[in-house]
Design a protein around this nucleic acid. Structure first.
Lengths: 332, 332
DNA sequence: CCTACAAGGGTAAGCGTTTTCATCTATACG
DNA sequence: CGTATAGATGAAAACGCTTACCCTTGTAGG
């Protein structure tokens, strides 16, 4: 591939002049500008960003670590993050961990190796691995350390919202399908839910999924859900898992919301496509995505970010998997 | 961040020795190995991949250009591609074009600038932009040029499959909701469908979406779908758009499959979550993803790829949005 | 006519690697 | 005892870029 020396030779100028022209730094006469332009055109030249980055000590790339890009919430998040950072001139290095610790560790190394400008990590399992990295890190749905900025909805409150809604809808035999325990967001959700249930003296059964994209489970053995008929209310830790649960109920001919009511968490787009459409707790993907991207860019620029814990307000989104009338609960 | 010179100094060795140790190339005595190891440990050093890449003339990164990572088919594809290339030591640079020509052009430049090892581009609008790039390119769902390998299902056949199924299910008033016309895959689908309809002397109405993720349309004006009641069969160019159509039918209280039958294209995971679950034409995401990743890696390694057009067999997946009995059509 | 300064442009060092090449020490072989 | 030879190491050049620094003009002011 062409390099600057070649362009300089073609245009009959010094290499520094080419650099100055490309970066708009320093004086270049119109005459030479034209020559250089032509040479670049002719050879289809693009400056080598790697060489630039090596000089500037970091690239214009932001690493995005997610458990699973197929989770509707996470891919919408990726979409928004991409949009925001690309406006600031950054690009996305995608890392899919599959909820595996080793893959996350591996990718942290890869990102460090590539001298990315910053990292956004979602539902991370790692801790110390991030601390001596020397690049800005922003975390979503997991608390990593005191120094690393964490973004999350108020998950305790979200859990409470979920319980209260289920309770108001008349549920008394309730099961909570929870997710990966290494995520503080998910355990918070669970705790908020349990605490509120305790107030109303309702005991909650607990089920544990260790990852969230459970499509395969439908075809095989969701042993965990076997006696789902016992319950009249289910709180699932996120929407895609809720979709699985709903599908499972349909297979078992358990009617939603008549026999069992369901509430999810996320408000990802899948909720609207489900039938019945999914009641859920929203953690605004727009707000979360923009915040994550914003914070990491500010950190990259060396600006101070005052809060180390950024909390986003959860909100009940009432749809068809629960029985209460719409109007009575809309808006928090 | 630490560099090799620092490690060399800490370990009291030459810089070349450190390089040899890291790359396992050439002789390093056990004694020095240990010293170097310790120095690396102590300083949390990672070799700078940028510098490596600049020397080796390209990085271990593969650019993935998709219209929209939120499309369930595309994000599953991304997942599989990531899995395959990561096993070969490559990582993914994610480019989301939003179906916009300018964003795709921009990203081609960015990828070239970063000297990626190869590019996988999905449903591309660009043509010449790829031709003089000097890196291997593999295209899915769009034919770019004679030299660039294209992977696609046999979309003409897929379209035929779709029509024949709808016809066998008794549909006679049929509309085809088609997608972005710059994708040869989508126009092929359309043509195959129309041709087969012509054989049966059925005239097809045509509707055009210019992008596929139409969630917003539900809330606003899907004028195009206004008189959907006229029809008893709909073929939608992909699953996520089909999901939108189904949701719209439900809003208009049009019963599926009793009053109108629907068939999609892709067999993405969303089809199983819809209610009724979506009959669709499968283009095995597994097979497509593996093929794309495989071909690009082989091209990167300089191996010859004999076929320039790789065709993957489409297959009818019968579910609940069409009326025919299951057993009669399973398996192509 | 000389000086000063601004505009314009080139040389070379340096960023963090890899790799070639030269050097040096033992050991083995004749 | 001389000399291959294998093992072990470092110096230095190169990759493609940016930038500090220096040199050359041309013009204006004295």
């Amino acid at each position: 591939m062409t390099n600057m020396r070649r362009i300089a030779k073609e245009a009959g100028v010094g290499i520094a002049t080419v650099s100055r022209y490309i970066n708009n730094t320093g004086y270049v006469s119109d005459e030479l500008k034209k020559k250089i332009e032509e040479a670049i055109e002719r050879t289809n030249y693009r400056p080598n960003e790697l060489a630039r980055a090596i000089f500037n000590r970091n690239s214009k790339i932001i690493g995005l670590i997610v458990p699973n890009i197929s989770n509707p919430y996470f891919n919408e998040l990726a979409l928004i993050i991409e949009e925001v950072v690309s406006k600031a001139g950054y690009s996305i290095f995608l890392c899919n961990t599959n909820d595996e610790l080793e893959k996350e560790q591996h990718y942290i190394n890869v990102l460090q190796g590539h001298r990315v400008a910053g990292i956004i990590t979602v539902r991370s399992r790692c801790k110390e691995e991030y601390t001596f990295l020397g690049v800005p890190v922003v975390s979503f749905e997991s608390v990593i350390s005191d120094e690393i900025v964490t973004v999350a909805t108020d998950n305790v409150k979200g859990g409470k919202l979920a319980f209260n809604h289920l309770y108001e809808c008349g549920c008394r035999e309730i099961v909570h399908v929870s997710g990966p325990i290494y995520s503080s967001a998910i355990t918070d959700r669970c705790n908020g839910f349990l605490k509120e249930a305790d107030k109303k003296q309702i005991t909650i059964d607990l089920l544990q999924f260790d990852t969230d994209f459970q499509r395969k489970m439908l075809e095989s053995n969701i042993r965990a859900l076997e006696d789902i008929e016992k319950y009249d209310g289910i709180f699932v830790f996120n929407d895609i898992a809720a979709a699985t649960v709903i599908r499972y109920c349909q297979l078992k001919k358990v009617k939603i919301p008549e026999e069992v009511q369901v509430i999810g968490y996320d408000n990802s787009y899948i909720g609207e496509f489900l039938y019945p459409s999914l009641t859920t707790i929203e953690q605004s993907v727009q707000e979360v995505g923009i915040t994550l991207a914003d914070v990491v860019i500010r950190l990259i620029r060396g600006e101070e970010v005052q809060e180390q814990r950024i909390s986003i307000e959860p909100r009940l989104i009432k749809r068809e998997t629960t029985k209460l009338q719409n109007n009575s609960v809309q808006g928090v």
